[in-house]
Amino acid sequence: MSPLSFAQWIQSTGFFTDLRGSAYVYPIILTIHLMGIALFGGMILLVDVRLLGLGMRRYSVSDLVNQLRPLKWIGFIVMIICGLLMAGCKAEEYYYNTFFWTKMSLLALVGVHALVFHRGVYSNTAALDAALTMPGQAKLAAALSLLLWTGLVIAGRGIGYIEPPLDKIHAHLFANPGSLPRVL
């Protein structure tokens, strides 16, 4: 199954058809998605400014990272579930949406960021607190995290600004099977 036919199938399921058809459900999911962003984004910002030495300096890095971890997970899971629900509603449209793929790539980079800095920074907070100055690796992790999350907000908002003309795309595909039209 190609990604495109998967996208077409998932949005045609009864569940997502109903979701798309409701005037209230989609904005409500989007609102909860944004609440996840406020909660999760706020905590990311606090940890990052602490690592960069710009604020929250009365707190040890260990305190911030370890104590905020459960709340961060709650925010993250809420965001992901709402994100999946919204993506399922308009899966085929998003398949042609550049900002959607930008956002997915940035999310993959967030995963890479976590893998790369996990050992040296996020599970090494006791050493960071013991160090006389904040190691460069921790500052780099914080700066990259701020960049990635700002990029995610921008790409996420951008998704809503593109409405790929599905009927034109379908007409093109019908007339020229196998050749994808240039969108954007």
Binding site: I37, L39, G41, G42, M43, L46, L71
Partner: peptide, 18 residues
């Protein structure tokens, strides 16, 4: 402006929520 607004409320509402 919308993106700036989102970052603004992540900071304000995020910290209030914490």
């Amino acid at each position: 402006l919308e993106c700036i607004h989102i970052v603004g409320f992540a900071l304000s509402i995020g910290t209030i929520a914490i």
